[in-house]
Write a protein that binds this DNA or RNA. Structure first.
Length: 311
DNA sequence: TAAGATAAGAGGGACAT
DNA sequence: ATGTCAGTCTTATCTTA
């Protein structure tokens, strides 16, 4: 059985993650163009110290090779957590001698049973199906590994509590991804996930609420500044506009004006107003598109903001 | 063509029955 | 469990500059 490495589009960059200080592998969110650390899942700020050195030193090629760690890491996102031993197809024994036909057929039988017992229980079969799907989801949504691990952890919990029965694997999985994103502060909307996973928005939302209650989750609220960053990057707005929008967002959030409003809608309209102030020609349509809300929402929010804050 | 206005409808939370 | 209500957002259509 081949267990491949992650097929996420890794980019080796000249950066090193400022949060976990360990990692120089990043994935880029194609939508928002945010750079995300593949180790800790944090979004990397644009202006950051550069250093692409590994955290260890190698004084010779030999040492270098011996110090780089290889092998399949253990992962919650494998039904056996990547720990299983698998009987291979050897035609030689441990000392390198060819093994005879009788032994080979015995090994073949053992191998068959070995494989059968590994995926024996319905739990295992369910997890295998789910994690295969998670693997595809990872590519579609460009999820960094820590989010994948979190998702797998949540899914396992749901499985343990027998919450999957009578519901679809994809629905629960999509909801788990959403929860994982929320927990790590990655601004992905239910809509993003619904579109990436071919699960209807309604079902993702329902599954999410179910998991939220059943697993007793405490969800951090979405940081509205993150939403600003996401929308601004996606719609290619200038840094200046972005900064001003963030300031406005801070004020608005403090006055609790944004309570109960869609944070993406707020972010979109604030960016719209900020870009007008800076003389950037940006249409409501463009910004609404980038935020995944309608023009009408942008208009209404913008109008409210103008009225209340006289911007 | 972009922006504003208006209306109908969906879906979910709060609350009462 | 079910119904109602206010508030939000979406979709669609029309008007205005």
């Amino acid at each position: 059985m081949h267990r491949g490495y992650s097929n996420l589009k890794m980019q080796s960059s000249s950066l090193i993650c400022s949060i976990c200080k360990k990692n120089d592998k990043f994935v880029t969110d194609p939508e928002s163009e945010e750079i995300i650390c593949s180790n800790c899942g944090q979004v990397i700020p644009d202006n950051i110290q550069v250093s692409n050195r590994p955290e260890w030193h190698g004084f010779s090629i030999l040492q270098r090779n011996s110090r780089s760690r290889t092998g399949i890491p253990t992962s919650l996102a494998r039904h056996d957590m990547g720990l299983a031993t698998i009987i291979g197809r050897p035609d030689r024994d441990a000392s390198g001698q060819r093994i005879d036909a009788a032994m080979r057929s015995a090994m073949e039988r053992l191998r068959t049973w070995d494989l059968r017992t590994q995926v024996h229980t319905s739990t295992d079969r369910n997890l295998i199906q789910a994690f295969n799907e998670l693997d595809r989801l990872k590519d579609r949504l460009c999820l960094p590994d820590p989010i994948v691990e979190k998702t797998a952890y949540i899914y396992r919990k749901a499985q343990e509590r027998m919450l999957i029965r009578g519901r679809t694997v994809s629905g629960i999985l999509a909801a788990a991804v959403y929860i994982a994103c929320r927990e790590s502060g990655t601004p992905k909307t239910l809509k993003d996930i619904s579109e990436g996973s071919n699960v209807k928005l309604k079902e993702v939302a329902r599954s999410y609420r179910m998991l939220y209650f059943e697993l007793d989750l405490k969800m951090p609220i979405i940081d509205p500044i993150r939403c600003i960053a996401k929308v601004a990057n996606k719609s290619k707005l200038s840094e200046k506009t972005k900064r001003q929008a963030a300031e406005i967002m801070n004020i608005v959030t403090k006055k609790e004006f944004s309570a109960g409003k869609d944070p993406m809608g707020m972010a979109a309209s604030i960016l719209y107003l900020a870009s007008l102030k800076n003389g950037e020609n940006i249409t409501q349509k463009h910004i609404a598109n980038a935020a995944g809300v309608t023009e009408v929402t942008v208009r209404n929010r913008a109008k409210d903001l103008k009225d209340k804050f006289l911007i």
